[in-house]
Design a protein around this nucleic acid. Sequence first.
DNA 1: AAAAAATGAATGAGCGTTCATTCTTACGGC
DNA 2: GCCGTAAGAATGAACGCTCATTCATTTTTT
Lengths: 218, 218
Amino acid sequence: MNAIQRRSPRAEAKAESQRERILDAAQKCFIEHGFHGAGMALIAETAGVSAGLIYRYFDSKHAIVLAIIARELEGKRAKIEELHARDDFLEAVIAKFRGWQAGEPEVMNAPLFLEMSAEGTRAPEVARAIAASDALTRQDFERWLLRPRAEGGVGMAADCARRSALLVQCLIEGLVVRAVRDPGLDAATLREALAPVFHAMGLTPGVQAAPPSPEPSP
Amino acid sequence: MNAIQRRSPRAEAKAESQRERILDAAQKCFIEHGFHGAGMALIAETAGVSAGLIYRYFDSKHAIVLAIIARELEGKRAKIEELHARDDFLEAVIAKFRGWQAGEPEVMNAPLFLEMSAEGTRAPEVARAIAASDALTRQDFERWLLRPRAEGGVGMAADCARRSALLVQCLIEGLVVRAVRDPGLDAATLREALAPVFHAMGLTPGVQAAPPSPEPSP
DNA sequence: AAAAAATGAATGAGCGTTCATTCTTACGGC
DNA sequence: GCCGTAAGAATGAACGCTCATTCATTTTTT
């Protein structure tokens, strides 16, 4: 962390806005050129500040990368939460998919997601942050699947919810990859492919969950 | 492409082995440090040659990146083909998943998969190569799903096969991501999560495909 | 001895980072 | 209200280093 002590809360607020300004610029650069491909000079120019000034707010480029990752992980969790706030889960997922394809800044950025995942295989601290965030995300999913339908949940049994949470997590991550690799894939085709799975899992409104067990009891 | 004309087929063969030697080293470096993070000096040292020599076999570092991507895409298709050569699709997928977790060189490398996908969002030629490869992979899947069970296929209807191919592609890509982000996820848990889906799709041996349509006929 | 293969030092550009310097802001005495 | 001043904010040139790439030179092959 940066160790500058600031006098007034007024100054503190401005300092914080500068930090975000730099982070926003860094995020844009990292998306366009990757963590290693984007240089400090480019980040500084994008942020509209001098290169030297960045070091008043961040200790190093690596610190910026970590801050971006932390910010993105936090944002991801919030965005995933939105998925089971809507009554139609399938449509919510497809709406997010469109956002990933278009690279909209309001949703979790897909190229950054890939970059972060790859970076996790090199930097252990990144791997730990990702693992912690993923565990929380899956817990969020599981709680939603467990909650009764009357309370906006799906009303699954315990082991069923655990399995389904993992499955949905894999599927969503797969969709992020697909959005990047096939930006032209249309939503209707995707809907047709996903609908039966979500239907069978009971994620379609008004449909009870089928028991997802490998050997259905006779 | 490199424009060196070689005299004998003997020399041509040795030149080709040098190329592969350099590509093997580059692949290792790219996996460990990313496309931008790995330098020519490191690649040269890993390959056991001088830095200058690499330019006798490749025009530039970018050419090496493209060659690695092309090679990996080709390998990926072959490895995916193996999936529907085995009689138990689920077990085949889980075996691959273990390979992705362990980072085994014999299967498609997961970090490289992420790096390539991210690079596709920046370099149009990479995006084109990936899109072409993905289309072929999905066609392979679709053909397998269409083929009668007697011939080792799944025996699906046409539109059902098209949807299922997309779904399986998304799922597998999701599993690659999951293998990277959760190297500790055990195969048994994953099997329990995947089994009902594969079962419902008729990919479990001896089970007929359920009609994956959003509205099953009454 | 001619040709090909391989070397590794040299090159300029760009990297992340630092720092002496300049500009901006805040504020107490008048 | 105004000014002097001290501290904070911001600059951009400079640093040492590494990068991808080149090429005169040496070693190996034929």
